[in-house]
Design a protein around this nucleic acid. Sequence first.
DNA 1: CTAGGGATTGTCT
DNA 2: GACAATCCCTAGG
Length: 186
Amino acid sequence: MPLNLLELKALNALELAPRLIGMKLLVGGVGGSIVETEAYLAEDPASHSFRGPRPRNAAMFGPSWHAYVYRSYGLHWCLNIVAEGAGAVLLRAIEPTEGLAEMRARRGSRVSLCNGPGRLAQALGITGAHNGLSLECQPFSIVDRSHAPEISSSTRIGISKATEQPWRFGFAGSRFVSRAFPKPGR
DNA sequence: CTAGGGATTGTCT
DNA sequence: GACAATCCCTAGG
């Protein structure tokens, strides 16, 4: 499906995060279907944009539908999609479908290719050089889903602030997520 | 200027 | 399940 960029660029992080589930993301022809995301809002203590513009988070205050890439724990890269309102959506897992050999080469032939933000970035060849780039241009290629999938949600992973917000989203039932989602409540 | 701590992952026990 | 690896932003003096 072609992208409705006008619609997508107007969404804030909390709206965009579930909207991205099921969309296909390729970087240099390598990638697959997005199955797990997390939303980070500007007024969110867990967000890098919470304390206002800084050199590191400048991309979050730029135009939406651009990449925000940061280094995590000094060694891993993490890829976000900037949303309206100085928020961003962290891409945590994709179901790899294109360029499997290249991903395995970058991942050192490890079994886990794209389940987790650091692994995903490594498998897709993302580095700080991609920070601030528009997702409308090479090497990025994004294709919309044809219909809305069933979405799971849970609290976000690895944060110490605003831990109760259920702002992690996933493709229901996918085995490619970084962590299983709790069963729907009853 | 220095100390503390991550939106993580791989390895070892 | 525990912990090291490793960079750099942030807070505080």
